[in-house]
């Protein structure tokens, strides 16, 4: 926890040195969690593959008019995961789908974290009827089946990747807000906040200098956990046909699988890979998130 920095450059550099040391400590403790480390490595590999997709498999391989593969073909040496109902290589589609799924998952989570942190700090810091009403709104979003609202939003707005991001972001922030609120309340009951008030600090100083730095580690762990559910939400929305139809994602691949009767037809090579990809990525984010959480919050260890 940071104490109020004095307004000289020496104190500021001392603060940043302390933060660097803290980050190093977090990394050392994170390293000791084997499952977290495995999750991190696998994630990095997948992100790298997604970034390199245009190099590994040129975009023209997705263009139905430029390929002449047989349709619904089982895996062969040249087409390691077979083809889909329009003759595209499942492996290539999977690679390109990773880009959309990861992008939506990460950006929607960031949006949700920003809303959740701001609202959570506001509700925890301020009192009065404004904060009370805001808290009701948090409760509302917490209880509401967020996917149903996300479905409504993406059905009403124009189809596209950004609509999906918006729909997931604005429906998934409530639990973060709740978490941040209780952390804000905990922080603000500590004596050093009282000291800051006594020294004449305003709302901005208390929130920006004291509450925010204390809340952020928790938000970070929560972020990694939330990316997983955001990716699942994205795939669900795409699966329901609400995604961007021009860009393949893992969810839209599975939609094609359902619509073309791939499941009832026994075309396992088209049903298994997109789902496995989702499971692996979500699991990795969960493992990293839990490892981070137990570093930040040692009492959770062994859960």
């Amino acid at each position: 926890m940071t104490s109020a920095p004095r307004s000289s450059s020496r104190a500021t550099s001392a603060t940043s040195a302390r933060r660097r040391a803290a980050a190093g400590r977090v990394w050392r403790e994170f390293r000791s969690s084997r499952s977290g480390l495995v999750g991190l490595v696998v994630l990095l590999v997948i992100v790298l593959l997604a970034i390199l997709a245009p190099v590994l498999a040129p975009a023209r391989l997705l263009d139905v008019t430029q390929i002449d593969n047989p349709i619904n073909h089982p895996p062969t040496w040249s087409l390691p995961l077979g083809t889909d109902p329009s003759g595209r290589s499942v492996l290539v589609t999977l690679l390109w789908g990773a880009r959309v799924s990861l992008l939506v998952g990460v950006v929607a989570t960031l949006l949700s974290m920003v809303i959740g942190t701001v609202v959570g700090m506001a509700v925890g810091h301020y009192s009065g009827w404004g904060a009370a009403v805001l808290m009701r709104v948090v409760d509302f979003f917490l209880v509401l089946p967020s996917l149903v609202l996300a479905i409504v939003l993406s059905a009403v707005l124009a189809r596209g990747v950004w609509t999906i991001i918006l729909a997931i972001g604005v429906t998934s922030w409530a639990s973060t807000a709740r978490l941040v609120r209780s952390q804000t309340l905990t922080i603000e009951s500590r004596p050093y906040i009282e000291r800051a008030w006594a020294l004449g600090a305003g709302h901005r100083t208390v929130i920006g200098r004291h509450v925010l730095p204390a809340v952020l580690p928790l938000v970070l762990a929560n972020t990694t956990l939330t990316v997983g559910s955001a990716i699942i939400a994205e795939s669900t929305l795409s699966f329901l046909g609400l995604g961007d139809t021009t860009k393949p994602s893992w969810g839209s691949m599975l939609k094609v699988a359902l619509d073309s009767g791939a499941a009832t037809g026994g075309f396992w090579w088209f049903v298994l890979p997109p789902g496995l990809a989702i499971v692996v990525v979500v699991l990795c984010f969960t493992l990293v998130g839990r490892a981070l959480e137990s570093v930040i919050n040692p009492t959770l260890r062994g859960r």
Partner: peptide, 15 residues
Amino acid sequence: LWSVPTFWLGLILLL
């Protein structure tokens, strides 16, 4: 199982 999308599990069972 927490990481498994509901609809995919359904598709697998269907398959």
